[in-house]
């Protein structure tokens, strides 16, 4: 659960109960489990309005055969990056998720599919799933892949996407991983043409005593963007200017200034982010420079309990446009988990 107060420059602040999540699990046996997660986003759901969302984020069965090989089927989280599978508010610094985990990795990213997962050796874990693809018709210049999620709702499954992650967790405090996602996302267009999308991501997370370091880098390539932009432009009247390459990443350092006190823990952090959803354009298209963004985020978290986080941060956002100003913002959030 988390609610936020966001105050960008030049506009009034906004209070939002961003996520209310109910997690349901059931154990049929030692080998068969169910996991379900239902989320109400932005507190209020109204039909056909731009209000909140009621989302079924996870609903899958795990068939646990052995440590090395298990099968998962249903609506499940994509195993990409640091945040998507590990998104409980107390486990990451900052009120809002990093830009890269919003535009390039569209967290919370979930689709219907089937796949295998397991652990081999001393700390090598893998996941490999076949799922419904992203919908390229909804890609945008500003938000990249974000609006392309089909979210398990009457999804087009004519061309399945493949996603996989390999990570090493064998050293205490260290988690490193690489993720890939590949799919053909042009299924909405008639006559049909392919929009191949490839995402590659690498990340590392290290914690030692009070220190926590994180790094993540993502590159996305979208094929056939001239046809995609043209087809969407003819449909809605606005050319979306989708780039053929997008990329982004961040570096973050956090330190628990107070740890183990009776009243809880206090941590401070700094994060540098870079996200460019217009990195490389097809011939004949110019990048919109306001979407080549960098940000410094500084802030603190107070944990009165390990499962409750009171967070604030100040975000200094910059872009490469000479005419459009990127606003700084002050953000406050309270998140908890049980």
């Amino acid at each position: 659960m988390e609610f936020h107060y966001n105050k960008p420059e030049f506009v009034d602040g906004e209070l939002d109960f961003h996520r209310f999540v109910l997690l349901v699990t059931h154990r049929y046996s030692d080998r068969i489990r169910f996991v379900g997660e239902l989320e109400v986003a932005h507190a209020f759901v109204e039909g056909l309005e731009e209000a909140g969302e009621l989302e079924l984020e996870q609903a899958y069965l795990d068939f646990l055969f052995s440590r090395g090989l298990n099968i998962r089927a249903g609506l499940m989280l994509m195993p990409v990056g640091i945040i998507n599978e590990r998104h409980e508010p107390p486990v990451f610094y900052g009120v809002e998720r990093p830009l890269v985990d919003t535009a390039l990795i569209p967290t919370t990213w979930f689709e219907i599919g089937v796949g295998v997962h397991g652990e081999v050796g001393r700390g090598w874990r893998y996941r490999a799933f076949l799922t419904a693809p992203l919908d390229a018709e909804r890609f945008t210049a500003e938000d990249g892949l974000r609006d392309g999620r089909q979210k398990g709702s009457r999804t087009n499954a004519g061309r399945l996407a493949a996603t996989a992650r390999l990570e090493y967790v064998g050293t205490p405090g260290l988690t490193t991983g690489v993720s890939v996602w590949t799919g053909r996302s042009g299924f909405q267009f008639r006559p049909r043409f392919d929009v191949p999308v490839h995402l590659i991501e690498a990340d590392a997370r290290y914690s030692f005593d009070r220190l926590e370091l994180r790094a993540e880098a993502v590159q996305v390539s979208v094929g056939n963007t001239p046809d995609l932009n043209d087809a969407v432009g003819r449909t809605i009247g606005i050319d979306p200017n989708v780039a053929k390459t997008m990329r982004g990443g961040y570096l973050e350092a956090g330190y628990r200034v107070v740890s183990g006190a009776r009243f809880g823990d206090i941590g401070a952090f700094v994060r540098y982010e870079s996200v460019d959803t217009q990195h490389r354009m097809a011939d004949g298209y110019l990048p919109l420079r306001e979407f080549d963004r960098t940000a410094w985020v500084v802030g603190a978290t107070y944990w009165p309990d390990a499962d409750i986080a009171l967070k604030f941060d100040y975000t200094m956002l910059r872009n490469r446009s000479v005419s459009i100003v990127a606003p700084n913002s002050f953000n406050l959030g309270l998140g908890w988990w049980f």
């Binding site: 001393r122 700390g123 090493y168 064998g170 050293t171 490193t176 690498a202 590392a204 290290y206 790094a215």
Partner: peptide, 14 residues
């Protein structure tokens, strides 16, 4: 950072 982190995995594992 990512490459060096991957390189810290000991051959025998912890």
């Amino acid at each position: 950072v990512v490459v060096s982190a991957l390189g810290t995995a000991p051959p025998g594992g912890l």
